[in-house]
Amino acid sequence: MDTLRLLLAILTATTVLGPICYALIVYREDLSTLFMPRIELTLNVPRIEYVGYEYGYEGELLKVTIALNITNPYNKVLTIRNVTGSVYCHKHGEFLGSLSLLEETVLQPNKPTTLKLIFVLLSDCERCRDATSLYVDLKNLSINVQGITFYIGYENIGPIALGRS
């Protein structure tokens, strides 16, 4: 019965070494293909472009909705759950108000989608009072996409006329 023991030992050795040796022989020309992870994915921060704005008064307060075009660069539907941030005057750096997401936005793969952000103008930029339009910076922007939070900033968004023209 030592033959059986020998056969079982050969079986174990063949089982363990066979596939590994086969892999090494097949990929001997380029072993990196065998060991390196392969994924067709480039991690990019989604591209964002300013589209326009809307505004309206809520009592005394001026409410501004900024529309941004956001392009989902991935092959997966993504949902923006929440956005928070601060709005500053681009020219003078004055704080203008806090930003939030108007509604949850679903981003289709590789397509641009309009993202609407809303802020209430809490304070005015003194030095922009006479200007016909305003450019803003979105700072400390926190974008929550399905449990992943991006902290980012976007500058020089505008022009926003704010009804002064």
Partner: peptide, 18 residues
């Protein structure tokens, strides 16, 4: 899987076969 793309590590398939 990450953002709709699947990662492949070829050597793992041979180890898994073992």
């Amino acid at each position: 899987e990450l953002l709709g793309s699947f990662m492949e590590i070829k050597i793992l398939w041979f180890i898994i076969l073992v």
